[in-house]
Design a protein around this nucleic acid. Structure first.
Lengths: 251, 251
DNA sequence: ACCTGAACACCGTTCAAGT
DNA sequence: ACCTGAACACCGTTCAAGT
């Protein structure tokens, strides 16, 4: 029988508060926030709720579906409310909102984008809003779809990496190894890396042993958002200029 | 004893061909390519090599380190050879090369970027080349580091999502559910989604049940690369114009 | 409808031996 | 140095019961 666990989070057992899907999803998120996805398991969720694993299964279907629901919960308030004068601001705001959400639930980051199941969310409001925004920018037809993918890809891409998960436990040895390997860069072979070593250590992709939780890349993200918006703007302008395709290779 | 497995891949056992790290890493990659990371395990690697799991452990340290080595192997030839006249072309080429590599090993995609251990690679040549390129573009100091992060974030971000892993087995029911949910969009509430439904089904993030392997986002990726490069170019130009920061928020 | 209970076929990893 | 062998503490998931 499931022992009266110290991990217990939700539900006062004896009450008439029965097990249900929402409770399971909330408990899962709480566990992931606290312990990370590496050590997340359906069995731990069951322990936290003081029921048998099979009771959880009755409600969730399977592990992937549960994780998909967690993602849906986390991203529930992603879509910005309408009404910014410039479409550029709306897109930038979307990226910022996404990052702020992930900052509150960094351990969820690895779930989004890398598994197709997380599409279970299917927030049509988000899709519609992005399309609306990009139509306003002047995109239509295939270009509109492409621009949509650019926005979504940019939104998730940078932040996912910034908050990439740190190895669970044996992390100490690995951190030391990383720090040393970085510090020991050959200044003759890689002069620019050596020159910027202090500014890049733990503040640049590949040269980190901590993630965005303890070492956020604020400035890098700001430039990423600026660049993406400026880039989309430039392409939109080029397309308006002539009714054709831009200098880049097309579909 | 490890049965003479049908999964057997490498090493003719009786030969003097002993177990070693490189062989283990190659075998792991072959298994991941064939079966996906979802069903990857150290024990399967051992079976494929016809040894006990503990023999593998003697060489690799632990599972995460092994996966990090797999990533290193896959990305070995990522960095483009020097010598493109325009820095813009070099950056675009880098993104294209990254995507081509992932197309050859799509199941590895989820490993890159989402786990900090994969930084074990530490290819200074890549870092140095990007810095060189962006210096040529006119970035310096903190801006140079930020621009570096923009490039790395963009390189990995889009493609990782395009090749997000599809659920392993029970995939049939999930696919049907997705297809129906998408097809059943409310045209009054989401007119633009409804209008572009055919063009977006399986060709736009969130509205997919297949990944880049069977439904590549070629045009979307092309625009993403164009937008990112154009955006970086615009920021560089703005910075050259005045010795200050661009309109976007800085730090 | 909702949960218990037992069971199956797996994991990663450690530790003690063998050669 | 390199591998076998056994063991530990876990997994996700299914299936048969109970209420």
């Amino acid at each position: 029988m499931p022992a009266a666990s110290k991990l217990r989070i939700g539900r006062p057992k004896a009450a008439e508060n029965r097990l249900n899907r929402a409770l399971i999803v909330e408990t899962s998120l709480a566990l992931i926030d606290r312990e990370g996805i590496e050590s997340f398991s359906v069995r731990n969720v069951a322990r936290a709720l003081d029921v048998f694993p099979t009771a959880v299964y009755w409600h969730i279907g399977d592990r992937n579906t549960l994780l998909s629901d967690v993602v849906t919960l986390v991203l529930a308030d992603l879509t910005p409310t309408r009404a910014t004068a410039r479409w550029q601001d709306w897109i930038r705001q979307l990226l910022v909102r996404y990052r702020n959400i992930i900052r509150q639930h960094p351990n969820v980051a690895p779930l989004i984008g890398v598994q197709l199941v997380s599409n279970g969310s299917l927030d049509f409001r988000l899709v519609e809003s992005i399309l609306e925004c990009l139509s306003q920018a002047g995109f239509k037809g295939q270009d509109l779809i492409d621009a949509y993918n650019v926005v979504m890809g940019g939104m998730v891409g940078f932040t996912t990496q910034e908050f990439a998960s740190v190895p669970a436990d044996g992390t100490e040895g690995w951190k030391k190894t990383m720090r040393r390997a970085i510090a020991a860069v050959d200044a003759k072979a890689y002069p620019r890396v050596a020159a910027h070593l202090a500014a890049m250590s733990n503040k640049a992709f590949l040269l980190r042993w901590e993630n965005g939780v303890s070492a956020p890349l604020d400035a890098g993200f700001a430039m990423f958002a600026d660049a993406l918006v400026a880039g989309i703007e430039a392409l939109a302008k080029a397309k308006r200029g002539r009714a054709k395709r831009p200098p880049g290779r097309g579909s």
